[in-house]
Amino acid sequence: MTMLSSWQQAWVLAGLVEPPRTVFESLCRAYAEPQRHYHSLQHLRECLAQAGEIERLAERPGEVLIALWFHDAVYDTHARGNEAASAAWARDIVAAAGSREAADRVHALVMATEHHAVPATRDAQVLVDVDLSILGADAARFDEYEQQVRDEYRHVPALLFRTRRRAVLQAFLARPRIYNTEAYVDRLEARARANLGRSIERL
């Protein structure tokens, strides 16, 4: 499925009118910005490739897919509030498509990708599991991901980066479960824990 057809399918599933094509084009340009190494079109494609799983697990799969399109739409490693800015953009676009209720739900979904708390709804659980699926990738892809994250934060001194990165990875590893849905626990939990442990040792 092409990026455009994936975008269109999300709006069909959500029962909403597709926004002007310029919105799709703006999102693609955003994910292609030069400061991105992990939070890029590659990451977006990897998430959207799980659309079948989203349709199977989510209560409102169209809204989850729309949230995926926007969840890293704003990404500045020198600033805070990327998720809030991305969520606000998503809410404005969905509201303009005709549903304030859906707009508020999509906004909440994007905010769940801050990963500060256990997701409160089924759809947030699905979205967060998809976003974190990289942790359970095969070893080669996970190692590439870790290097991509370092490249995004190349302005951070090595010692400080290692300290902060270790804390982030240890926080995921300390959770009773990294993933929220049984499908993702069964498929990715063990490999994610192995990847995290290996990365922490290297740091």
Rank of each mutant, 00 (worst) to 15 (best):
W7Y: 10
Q8D: 13
L13M: 05
L13N: 06
L13P: 04
L16I: 06
P19D: 02
V23K: 06
S26M: 12
S26R: 10
A30D: 05
E33Y: 10
R36E: 06
H39G: 07
S40A: 13
S40T: 14
L48F: 12
E55F: 13
L57F: 11
P61Q: 07
E63Q: 01
L68F: 13
V74N: 07
T77S: 14
G81C: 04
G81Y: 01
A90F: 01
R91K: 11
D92Q: 08
I93F: 11
A95P: 08
A97P: 15
G98K: 00
S99D: 13
E101A: 14
A103I: 01
D104R: 00
D104T: 05
R105G: 08
V106R: 06
V106D: 08
A108S: 09
A108Q: 10
L109K: 00
H116A: 15
V118I: 09
P119R: 03
A120Y: 09
A124D: 03
D129H: 01
D131N: 08
S133R: 01
G136Y: 10
A139G: 10
A140I: 15
A140C: 15
R141Y: 14
E146D: 15
Q148M: 11
Q148D: 10
Q148T: 10
D151L: 13
Y153W: 14
R154N: 10
P157C: 09
L160N: 08
F161D: 07
R164E: 05
R165G: 01
Q170N: 05
Q170E: 04
I178E: 05
Y179D: 00
N180P: 00
Y184F: 05
L188S: 08
E189H: 04
R193W: 08
G197N: 03
R198I: 12
S199T: 05
R202D: 03
